[in-house]
């Protein structure tokens, strides 16, 4: 278990520990749209989603302002948030904005340098699926869920902050 141990091929795992096959395909910006479960780049999504029917995936890079997706979210079933390196924490803000400000309730997936030590933070920020580089993805999810029973602050996972437990309404 380590942040840098990325020798394992990524496997798709849900926040409940179910390991799944990834049916989504990331399209290059000049690929035709015909495929089922297509993931669009962020730039393409904000330019083209308005004129499209159906439900798509969108790949969001760390520097993308995810609020620009707000008008099109009804056409988005999956958002992949890219973590090019585990030290780049912009994706945590992206996730909370999607969940708590924009009300996105589809699949929110962390992709890239996603390792078991980040899962706890990612789940708190609203991610519910992960392309995880780990020998035992289900075990990694179980471990992350068992780490802490309480949290000092509210985030996107619905966990009540400790102050709410101290002062029940």
């Amino acid at each position: 278990m380590s942040l840098l141990n990325s020798s394992h091929a990524p496997q798709l795992v849900s926040d409940q520990g179910e390991v799944n096959v990834n049916g989504w395909t990331l399209l290059a910006d000049d690929d035709a749209l015909g495929v089922d479960q297509a993931v669009l780049s962020f730039g393409r999504a904000i330019n083209e989603l308005d004129g499209l029917n159906g439900r798509y995936g969108v790949r969001v890079a760390p520097g993308d302002d995810v609020r620009k997706l707000a008008p099109f979210l009804s056409k988005v079933a999956l958002i992949e948030v890219a973590f090019p390196g585990y030290r780049d924490g912009r994706g945590y803000s992206t996730a909370r904005i999607l969940r708590q400000d924009l009300g996105f309730d589809g699949e929110l997936r962390a992709v890239g340098d996603v390792l078991r030590d980040q899962l706890f933070w990612m789940m708190r920020c609203g991610f519910n699926s992960f392309l995880l580089k780990d020998a035992d993805p289900a075990g990694a999810i179980r471990h992350a869920r068992s780490l802490y029973t309480h949290a000092y602050q509210s985030a996107a996972d619905g966990l009540k902050p400790v102050w709410a437990l101290r002062h029940p309404a």
């Binding site: 585990y86 030290r87 780049d88 924490g89 945590y92 803000s93 909370r96 706890f120 933070w121 990612m122 708190r124 920020c125 802490y148 949290a151 000092y152 602050q153 985030a155 400790v162 102050w163």
Partner: peptide
């Protein structure tokens, strides 16, 4: 101190 401890959004700041 309490709010910032294990804050999930701000553990990998610049």
């Amino acid at each position: 101190r309490q709010w910032s401890t294990f804050h999930p959004e701000f553990t990998f700041l610049p």
